[in-house]
Design a binder for these strands. Structure first.
Length: 260
DNA sequence: TTAAATTCCTGTAAGC
DNA sequence: TGCTTACAGGAATTTA
């Protein structure tokens, strides 16, 4: 599922290919994909010149010269492709002669939604060890739920939160306030690192809801995954412990040996 | 204020 | 083989 590195990879491909070009036409898919058609988005995009593709957390933003921005969220099964058919096309725009399509089988994605309030991204300057420490020290919620809360930190989903906690040697179910200052500092560093490695690798293409970039290319982050979706820990080879729907209503995994 | 539960939706996999 | 059921996921919304 697309998290920050996957969305960033999509953004880079689109920016490289289409910045400065005109959106010649727009079409929406089945009405069932929308509670209400994204009329404002259609109006902004149609005939507009793309000045930039931006990203905030897991949100992709298309900026149209002199008109404003249109926000996309890929949800968990959302994909953007250049050309490419599927029964799940919910939005498409023609840029030059190419059709850029938004597919979304599970319909958790959004087109033309408002950009919500988001916390800093782990690579932002304001995401300091102090910032994370102040956030965790008074909270009783599981640390994994806290670092996945987009209002607090933007960009981490289940895969990267799981990996950051593993790299920091912290169990996901621990209360935020149970972490020591040293653990919190370590986690601040690993949150940033896993995302940077993810971006560098072009995202993670795992078996479930496999992510591909707009040109159909897989990412390479799965090579670096140590616990998420694995049977054995990539560090010590011991059996990974998985729990379902336990933390923040989501499945969790950790290595009982590396994460004390 | 915070935390937990519920909702949305469908492809996939497991079980009978 | 064909059917039913449970479950995964992000974020908005509701309830406690």
């Amino acid at each position: 599922m697309p998290e920050l590195p996957e969305v960033e990879t999509v953004r880079r491909v689109l920016a490289e290919r289409y910045t400065g070009m005109t959106v010649t036409a727009v079409a929406v898919g089945k009405p069932t994909f929308y509670r209400a058609p994204p009329l404002a988005a259609i109006k902004i995009l149609t005939g507009g010149v793309i000045s930039a593709f931006k990203r905030r957390g897991k949100y992709l933003i298309v900026e149209i010269e002199g008109r404003g921005e249109v926000v996309f969220h890929l949800g968990m099964s959302g994909r953007i492709t250049v050309g490419g058919e599927s029964p799940h096309v919910r939005f498409q725009m023609w840029i030059g002669t190419e059709a850029v399509r938004f597919h979304d089988s599970r319909r958790f994605g959004r087109v033309g939604c408002p950009l919500p309030k988001l916390g800093p991204e782990p690579m932002d300057p304001e995401f300091t060890p102090d910032y994370l420490w102040k956030l965790l020290r008074k909270r009783s919620a599981p640390v994994k739920a806290l670092i996945m809360d987009q209002k607090l930190i933007a960009g981490l989903g289940n895969i990267y939160a799981t990996e950051a906690l593993h790299a920091a040697g912290i169990r996901p179910g621990r209360a935020g306030k149970s972490l020591t200052r040293a653990e919190s500092d370590r986690l601040a560093r690993t949150c940033r690192e896993v995302l940077l490695v993810g971006v560098e690798a072009g995202g993670a293409t795992l078996e479930d809801a496999a992510y591909l970039d707009p040109l159909g290319r897989p990412g390479r982050m799965q090579m670096n995954v140590m616990v998420y979706g694995r049977e054995d820990c990539g560090t010590c080879r011991r059996k990974v412990v998985g729990t379902r729907k336990s933390i923040g209503g989501r499945a969790s995994a950790f290595c009982p040996s590396c994460q004390r």
